[in-house]
Write a protein that binds this DNA or RNA. Sequence first.
DNA 1: ATCGAATATTTCGTCATCGAAGTTCGACTT
DNA 2: AAGTCGAACTTCGATGACGAAATATTCGAT
Lengths: 170, 170
Amino acid sequence: MAAKRRRTAQQEHAADVATYVAAGGEESVQRVITALFSVTKKLDQWYVRQFADLDLTQGEWSVLAALARAGDTCLTPSQLADLSNVAPSSMTHRLDKMAGRGLLQRRPDESNRTRTLVSLTTDGWALFSAAVRESNVVESDTLRDLSDTERHELARLLEIVIAGLDDIEA
Amino acid sequence: MAAKRRRTAQQEHAADVATYVAAGGEESVQRVITALFSVTKKLDQWYVRQFADLDLTQGEWSVLAALARAGDTCLTPSQLADLSNVAPSSMTHRLDKMAGRGLLQRRPDESNRTRTLVSLTTDGWALFSAAVRESNVVESDTLRDLSDTERHELARLLEIVIAGLDDIEA
DNA sequence: ATCGAATATTTCGTCATCGAAGTTCGACTT
DNA sequence: AAGTCGAACTTCGATGACGAAATATTCGAT
């Protein structure tokens, strides 16, 4: 039962923020960033479990999702490596395995033969869809205490952040 | 210049959400979750770069941060593995390395000699503090388009989510 | 008191990932 | 038109992470 916990997640979170502030972080920044990672960390744990049912690692999922988001457009191994936050050399073996399972296919780019074009197979799309519907369950649970208005507001604020992300690294 | 991009991050994000919804996800859920991971993914990229300056991998950072958040309380390797989202067996070598660098120390627990207690050294605390101040820079940049009121609201909404996290897995 | 189950840590074999070097191809220069 | 530079992908050696088994200690039951 939840009442047995000595410290609630809220108190835990507040203490963590205090630690980062004491070490030199700004309060208004750390409060948001720490909360962000608390949520995604829990989500990551659940993804590992759920994807195991589908014989899918997080690395494979990131490839699957990147290709699905690209829609009809084929992607190159380099692009997939970028989108998956992984070294290009790591993508070779990962694509080998996934192609072996029939999730995707590689074909040479006719217009530029140094490139390889990767696209999802029907099985790949089916697995993507299954994974989305599975993960939507825990994601929905995660947000269950937020009203529709609050979800909308949360999305709006995060989208403001996203809009500014690409201009920062310059 | 930002105007050169064909699709803005906003449009990209909207298209991604549409893909997940088409695959069977709920719109109000996917809009939030997708945005969440967009932000943390970019942050992760920056952390890798910044921590490289301090000779720190993300795995080592998670150990450092967990010990710092624990404050005076010592943690066991198992607890650190849980908090870092890695297998307990992976923690052994990681602690070996960090102890070798003088960042932390291991000592046997007198009251239960199957346990080992890990705590930060002065050097460990110093590195933690340096890392927090470094990462606060990009984190602050990330939130630069949000007003104080908006940051507060964003933190508030995320904290609602956090408060419900522990009751879900049951 | 002793035996058995449970917990905490480490060791070991295997696989994934990384960075660097190698290979092949396209683009640009002269 | 040949040569050089750069880009894309792969191969290779080394490091890190995982799961299963081994070791050591505690707790509970007979």
